[in-house]
């Protein structure tokens, strides 16, 4: 059961400069590929601090921004918007493989 559906919980995200991969700012100020390691802001003031910190650490990434998330009973985070869910989990269909002769 999600604790927060209103989007007050936020993490900072960006795309990695070198390859565009989706990354999140963690508690140590490093960028990680894993949403579960992201630093979590629990209110508006925390979100402002998180975004400021993300911008300060933006050398290896492009255009940091805040992502609204929910947190379940086990502490697992999930973005609120479909766009951000897709950024986290990738394509919602199976792309054809490089050596594939047919799409299957």
């Amino acid at each position: 059961m999600a604790k927060n559906l209103s989007g007050d919980l936020t993490v900072a995200s960006a795309n990695r400069l070198a390859d565009g991969a989706v990354v999140f700012l963690d508690d140590k100020g490093c960028w990680t590929r894993h949403l579960e390691s992201a630093a979590l802001a629990r209110d508006k003031q925390g979100a402002e601090i998180l975004l400021a910190r993300a911008k300060a650490e933006s050398f290896p990434v492009v255009d940091p921004f805040l992502v609204a998330v929910t947190e379940d009973g086990q502490g697992a985070l999930e973005p609120v918007s479909l766009r951000e869910k897709i950024r986290v989990s990738g394509l919602t269909f199976a792309a054809i493989a490089a050596e594939a002769v047919r799409y299957a």
Partner: peptide, 17 residues
Amino acid sequence: KPAGAPPGDASSVQMEG
């Protein structure tokens, strides 16, 4: 556009084919 495929996508092998 074979059935169920992402329209317009082709793999490297398909392009070479």
